[in-house]
Write a protein that binds this DNA or RNA. Structure first.
Lengths: 159, 159
DNA sequence: TATTGTTATACTCTATAACTATA
DNA sequence: TATAGTTATAGAGTATAACAATA
């Protein structure tokens, strides 16, 4: 069944608002400041990707998960490495690739950051019913998946 | 009641995924390409803001709605003006300010853009139940509001 | 020859600072 | 003197191109 246009036009400003809260730095950068880890946003994205992965990742794999290009990841990893937050291990299976793993301080920094973000989420959702909270997670996940799928279909249709 | 941490940690990657689909250009830039209007993303943001407003807006008002600074809006408006997509009228009530209004071609371009985005939304939500679709809109709106409120409280607490 | 990553460079978007004009 | 906007410049973030090394 066809979703009606009015509902979709409602959705658009909402998504824009959320997107701005997030991406245009405010939320993420505040969380970085609040956690006192002294990194910039791109580095934190790398670090949290590694933390959420739960295992060492290749440069290319990080780039793919973040939907950015390789050279960008290379440089951010260099920053993190100098700060002692990640370390590189040669991939035993492929000498060309290196695996990137967070160090203990790196994992601690990622957790501090998560703590700040989750603290705000907790506050924001404090008055919600448990049903609404779990519905938000479910619908948001499904929407992100369906939209991603629709967009990647565009690539294969008209490359 | 306290939302549980596991649920929130689920939310985070979802929001990141959605945020990247949107803001990191893919969705918006594709829609711009698909609609063939030959503009860049910042200009389109201005144009759609005017279209959704339904009335001429001041430079400062546009900046405020988009949460960007004035000079940025000034320049994008200059681009749009050269392309004949918006026009400026002096505000009769205040000679310092100018009101920006979309022209007929500007409104047409905005509608083409909305058409592309909404087409993808329609596809993505095609298999959803009507209940889920309206729940998504409702929860997303509430979440955006609550999160914005929480973040602006940070400004007043620790400026 | 194909793949993984790095180095060097350029581009897009947005911010800050200094200035002009009207209120 | 405060407010609305503009001009000029700077910065953050990410991409593209050219290259090196291993498979």
């Amino acid at each position: 069944m066809e979703p009606d246009r009015a509902l979709l036009m409602e959705l658009l400003p909402r998504l824009n608002q959320l997107s701005r809260s997030f991406n245009r730095g405010r939320l993420f950068e505040r969380a970085i400041e609040a956690s006192g880890i002294g990194l910039d946003h791109p580095s934190v994205q790398i670090l949290t990707t590694l933390q959420l992965a739960g295992e060492p990742l290749r440069i290319g794999e990080i780039a793919s998960r973040l939907q950015v290009v390789g050279p960008h990841v290379t440089r951010q990893v260099q920053v993190l490495e100098k700060r002692g937050l990640v370390e590189r291990v040669t991939d035993p299976a492929d000498q060309r690739a290196r695996l990137i793993a967070p160090t203990a301080p790196g994992r601690a920094a990622a957790e501090k950051y998560f703590g700040a973000v989750l603290g705000w989420f907790t506050d924001a959702l404090a008055d919600w019913s448990p049903e609404d909270r779990s519905a938000l997670g479910r619908l948001l996940g499904r929407f992100a998946d369906d939209l991603s799928a629709r967009l990647s279909r565009l690539d294969t249709e008209a490359p």
